[in-house]
Amino acid sequence: MARGKIQIKRIENQTNRQVTYSKRRNGLFKKAHELTVLCDARVSIIMFSSSNKLHEYISPNTTTKEIVDLYQTISDVDVWATQYERMQETKRKLLETNRNLRTQIKQRLGECLDELDIQELRRLEDEMENTFKLVRERKFKSLGNQIETTKKKNKSQQDIQKNLIHELELRAEDPHYGLVDNGGDYDSVLGYQIEGSRAYALRFHQNHHHYYPNHGLHAPSASDIITFHLLE
């Protein structure tokens, strides 16, 4: 058990104070529990340490709210009266702030102006003009950012397109080989008449015409020439 009497005054050493708090708190809760068991008592203990940490004991046969309510009934005290008044005052102040904020907003939207005199209206006008400039500047900056972003996207798209076109051009320029018709010029046709006393060398120039030996006799000029010489 304890080792020597201690003076009941604030413990200055913080560590000792905390240790003592912890030990005595547990002791207090233990004794509260004993009282509950031995004597059918109902006990509520609520403790806050110097650092505002919460610890509580509540007898198992009841609840904290039950004890608090019963306490208020028996002592005829409203423990919340002070809190309630404080909250009502807080609410009043909040509502006033709310009203002020709403009025200021409405005035900047051009409403609730009857309360203002000509000087106040001028000041409000000046402030709003400044705000208008600020917002417009910001809008243009934002717009500029968007334009810049769009331009970059556009350039990116154009680069992709250019690459694709270039690739297509490369494919189009590849040489492919096939038959080339050079016009079908035939240089000469030689004919000899061996049986006659005279031999003739005949040369035809028939550009842009195909010469078909099997049908040569049907060609008008060729046919005439040949016939003439053969008859002679």
Binding site: I11, T20, R25, L28, C39, V43, M47, S50, I67
Partner: peptide
């Protein structure tokens, strides 16, 4: 404990 440790204590006991 209130004095020694700067604690805040509320205690309610019903017989």
């Amino acid at each position: 404990i209130t004095v020694l440790c700067d604690a805040k204590v509320a205690l309610i006991i019903f017989a």
